[in-house]
Design a protein around this nucleic acid. Sequence first.
DNA 1: AATGCTCCAGCTGAGC
DNA 2: GCTCAGCTGGAGCATT
Lengths: 201, 201, 201, 201
Amino acid sequence: MGRAGKSHPHVNVSAAAVLRDYADRWVRLEDEKAEIAAQIKDLRAEAKSRGFDTKALAHIVRERRENSDQRDKRLEVEALTDIYRAALGMLDGTPLGEAARKRLSSPDEDSAPEEDSASPDAPEMAETAIGPEQIAEARDAGREGFRQGRRVIDNPFVAGDPRRAAWDEGWCLEAGSDGMDLPETWRRKAPKKPDGDGVAP
Amino acid sequence: MGRAGKSHPHVNVSAAAVLRDYADRWVRLEDEKAEIAAQIKDLRAEAKSRGFDTKALAHIVRERRENSDQRDKRLEVEALTDIYRAALGMLDGTPLGEAARKRLSSPDEDSAPEEDSASPDAPEMAETAIGPEQIAEARDAGREGFRQGRRVIDNPFVAGDPRRAAWDEGWCLEAGSDGMDLPETWRRKAPKKPDGDGVAP
Amino acid sequence: MGRAGKSHPHVNVSAAAVLRDYADRWVRLEDEKAEIAAQIKDLRAEAKSRGFDTKALAHIVRERRENSDQRDKRLEVEALTDIYRAALGMLDGTPLGEAARKRLSSPDEDSAPEEDSASPDAPEMAETAIGPEQIAEARDAGREGFRQGRRVIDNPFVAGDPRRAAWDEGWCLEAGSDGMDLPETWRRKAPKKPDGDGVAP
Amino acid sequence: MGRAGKSHPHVNVSAAAVLRDYADRWVRLEDEKAEIAAQIKDLRAEAKSRGFDTKALAHIVRERRENSDQRDKRLEVEALTDIYRAALGMLDGTPLGEAARKRLSSPDEDSAPEEDSASPDAPEMAETAIGPEQIAEARDAGREGFRQGRRVIDNPFVAGDPRRAAWDEGWCLEAGSDGMDLPETWRRKAPKKPDGDGVAP
DNA sequence: AATGCTCCAGCTGAGC
DNA sequence: GCTCAGCTGGAGCATT
């Protein structure tokens, strides 16, 4: 019975020996993984002790590690979330993100805008304080804007103006209200495969 | 644009309204689920405060909820784990479990034993067939054994005899039935620290 | 045989019976929870079949269920993530979100702006196409803006302009580069407890 | 200042640079961890393709990696689970495990048995003390038993005898050593579906 | 410092 | 074949 152990692991080696080999290798790998995990833990603790927010930092790391497919997918979900949020009146104060705006302005939009229109009814910007009434007006303006074929990027309110979010809400709400079926921009685009190998090379 | 509101949710209702409906229903369901989870948490805390081990109890609950397919699957994995453990010399002191024994004795075993083999020094094993009645008797014997001060290791039935488990059951049941408070053996012993550094060196 | 059982569970009831009671109640609760989960599953499938994106919808549901503490916490982490992302030059095209802007403009900012300043150097908006060079200029303008005490909300580029993100990046980068210790706006504010009971009332 | 940490991470280095450093290191570590995880995944797939059950193997690996404290804790929970199971009449056919027996026989038992008790019909139990040598003999006997066609249920040692486990080990080890391919009893039987609907009605 | 809870990511198995 | 939901195990986090 003098056959080798490691060298020809598949040739006439007892099942028990193969099993032991797998177990040992697996344990070894888990140990290495635990080692790395411990280093990450240390790094996290160090960053935290210096004042950084570890959760945000972890987020950054996740973004840095994702490839373009994954990134596209994530951005699409974020865009849809923004759109849904707007349609439910949950934006409260935060206007649509860039991804959502781009999506809603894409050429395959259902109600395509005819005129280019340069912020036609650009509003009298904030001399007076902005209250709930102004917010409501902005929302209605958004609805009206959609009905008249304005694009979402034609939102007349500048960034920082609380009415900007309200106009977005009105526009999205109207876009989801015109008796048609689900707007194309509300659907997932492509259920493509997420990745090549999962490891950033 | 005379479309309906709630009554015909699929007929010409705006996408935004449908979305809102889904969101509301989902939220409602999640709330109910959270409510149940909170009750479970309370129950767990109560059981713990009375001395039961919640982890073991949770285990019991999982077993009680599983159907026969799931149970078979679990037992199969447990049996294989025992077999692998034995093949690696890790049993140290704990013999194979019943499931593993049964599996290793199944007729589709690869190296079938030719001779029926008389369990060389087998004790007075089961002349008569063992039926439900004998099982019930064994359980009662276990209860009686506990009352008479027998220890659980005094179980008179050999391993492999189905009455062995029944005797154990009777003994344990009686141990938990004698009007006293929770037996010490039913409590967690030492809430010691789990580890040194987390990495096996 | 009055009742007992439920009413005086602590008086002279055997430990085994108490254990059985806990197990049964727990099983019952888990069954109810599974029932709810199944309904959620159905709802999810239905929404998907009608074209909604379930992931985005789930996101919405999570937001709807969170209370104000949790919401604040989430927004804070999102703001910090934006800030970190800017400081690492990862905004690529997406300007800072509202939460990040607000945070960076809060009164407890380390380098407080003296003048109110109404977009003082508002730029010549996009007659010409915007290329990498213009992006780089915008970033430098942001750095310069920070050094001159501009607030982040003084970003002169309108929403939709790709230079807007670049200006933000420059501003944040400079804010993290001026030799001081970690800016206050980069730190977590309050490690408060997240919730009262976990269930949205 | 002479040295400092890595290069001079604490001395007048901009927050943005420190942040970038953390992010880069973290990404690097995550990549390494993912690399290890991929190797584990490969190993798992390989073992599966050769007929081993990955779940059982993973179990083995977990046990091999745990230290004595963790092991004690796990065994205690297993013992308690057995005890609870017995008290609820759920043993059906599987007697108490060794850990449970030991626990229930420990000296701090509540209802201590007075008499040393003669295990009424105890077989010829251990006149001589059982040492490592006897254990090794039992293991060899198990191997020999397998070679002679004994079934695993023919283990001659009674429950409670430490040699019982050793005999099992020898038997299983030999079963996995006889030059053939993986024994059928080491393979997963049926990858059937687990359930009908998952909810107990 | 120890413990329990909650979140998250990876693996598993079903479905189109 | 690929995707997706469910689940189990693990790790961080807050608490006492």
